[in-house]
């Protein structure tokens, strides 16, 4: 198989399989999780201002008082790489073209130099966070295989995409194919790992907030 055939495969059959497994996993897990239900809390609800699921969804995006100073890398690095990922994924013109082809939604793209910068910043933030995870004994102790694995799966698409654009190491065609392949692996793994937080994040925050609001505690 030559590189153009490889590229055509990842754009065709590979994408077909990856999107299918992704959709299967996402619908399966969402239905399973949300159909579990919760036991009814029979106690009297207490009322406190600011205590609700809705508040929690937003409040949890901010660092609790003092935490930003205690672990700046986790918060700042986390912010930088999540925003960077969003810029790269939703701002690069070829990505928008794919999204508009699949969903019909479209918006203007950003200049490629800016995307390039965002990709570099994202990768730098992710590397700093990886280093932090390795060097901090507690973090390292708490890390499982899944943490390292999902880090690598998130990092690879950014790295291969950036390398393809910059013409590094391999011919563009091969790099582009590897980039698409890495995204496909990410899609396949996403529903079955902690990466599923992309879907459950706001739901679980809202749920936690509601339980706490019932008890009258704004968290």
């Amino acid at each position: 198989m030559n590189e153009l055939q490889f590229l055509t495969w990842v754009r065709g059959t590979g994408l077909n399989i990856a999107v299918a497994i992704f959709l299967l996993g996402v619908t399966w897990r969402l239905f399973e999780i949300y159909s579990l239900g919760r036991k009814k809390d029979l106690s009297m609800p207490r009322h406190a201002s600011g205590a609700s699921g809705f508040h929690t969804v937003f409040r949890r995006s901010l660092a609790p008082p003092g935490m930003l100073k205690r672990s700046p890398v986790s918060y700042i690095g986390g912010y930088v790489f999540h925003i960077g990922l969003a810029v790269v994924v939703f701002g690069f013109a070829p990505h928008i073209l794919l999204i508009s082809n699949l969903t019909g939604l479209s918006w203007p793209g950003l200049p490629s130099q800016f995307i390039d910068l965002a990709a570099v910043v994202t990768m730098a933030a992710m590397l700093v966070m990886l280093f932090d995870r390795i060097s901090k004994p507690v973090k390292r102790f708490l890390s499982t295989f899944e943490d390292w694995f999902t880090w690598a799966l998130t990092f690879l698409p950014v790295l291969t995409g950036w390398m393809a654009v910059q013409h590094l190491l391999l011919p563009y065609t091969t790099m582009l194919a590897l980039h698409i392949l890495s995204v496909e692996i990410l899609l396949i793994v996403l529903p079955f790992t902690k990466l599923f937080h992309a879907f459950t994040l706001f739901g679980s925050r809202w749920y936690n907030g509601r339980v706490n609001a019932h008890k009258g505690v704004p968290v």
């Binding site: 619908t27 399966w28 990505h95 073209l97 699949l102």
Partner: peptide
Amino acid sequence: LSLPADPLKFAAAAAVVGTGAG
């Protein structure tokens, strides 16, 4: 080049199967 080379044939079926399994 950034578009799927073929139409995504399995997507709808996969979503249905996933929903069913869930």
